[in-house]
Amino acid sequence: MASQGTKRSYEQMETDGERQNATEIRASVGKMIGGIGRFYIQMCTELKLSDYEGRLIQNSLTIERMVLSAFDERRNKYLEEHPSAGKDPKKTGGPIYRRVNGKWMRELILYDKEEIRRIWRQANNGDDATAGLTHMMIWHSNLNDATYQRTRALVRTGMDPRMCSLMQGSTLPRRSGAAGAAVKGVGTMVMELVRMIKRGINDRNFWRGENGRKTRIAYERMCNILKGKFQTAAQKAMMDQVRESRNPGNAEFEDLTFLARSALILRGSVAHKSCLPACVYGPAVASGYDFEREGYSLVGIDPFRLLQNSQVYSLIRPNENPAHKSQLVWMACHSAAFEDLRVLSFIKGTKVLPRGKLSTRGVQIASNENMETMESSTLELRSRYWAIRTRSGGNTNQQRASAGQISIQPTFSVQRNLPFDRTTIMAAFNGNTEGRTSDMRTEIIRMMESARPEDVSFQGRGVFELSDEKAASPIVPSFDMSNEGSYFFGDNAEEYDN
Rank of each mutant, 00 (worst) to 15 (best):
K31Y: 07
D128P: 09
M196C: 05
G431R: 02
Q235W: 08
A263W: 05
Y52I: 05
P322E: 08
A337P: 15
T350F: 11
A22S: 14
V463W: 10
E254V: 12
S245T: 15
S482L: 04
D340V: 14
G94T: 05
K348H: 14
I217C: 06
S486Q: 06
L108M: 10
D112N: 12
K325V: 03
M426E: 04
T350R: 15
V190K: 00
M13A: 06
D145A: 10
P419D: 02
R243T: 09
T437G: 00
Q12H: 15
V456Y: 07
I109R: 02
T45V: 09
S3V: 04
R293P: 00
T92P: 07
G35Q: 13
D340M: 06
V363S: 12
D455N: 10
D439M: 08
R99E: 04
M137G: 04
S3I: 00
E46N: 02
T232E: 10
M159D: 01
T134A: 14
G404S: 14
T147W: 07
S402F: 10
E18Y: 08
G93D: 04
Y148R: 02
D290N: 13
A427H: 00
N370G: 15
G393C: 15
Y219M: 13
I119P: 02
K351L: 11
R382P: 05
R342M: 03
I301S: 10
Y148N: 12
D497F: 12
P410K: 02
Y40G: 00
C164E: 01
M189D: 05
V242E: 10
G126A: 15
R384M: 15
K113H: 05
G209M: 07
M189Y: 00
R342A: 09
S84A: 15
V270S: 12
C333N: 08
D421R: 13
E252R: 01
E380H: 01
L466E: 06
K357M: 10
S450W: 02
I201M: 12
F230K: 05
A493T: 11
M105F: 03
D439L: 03
G460W: 11
D127K: 13
T378N: 03
N202A: 15
Q20W: 04
N368H: 11
D491A: 12
G94E: 13
N498Y: 15
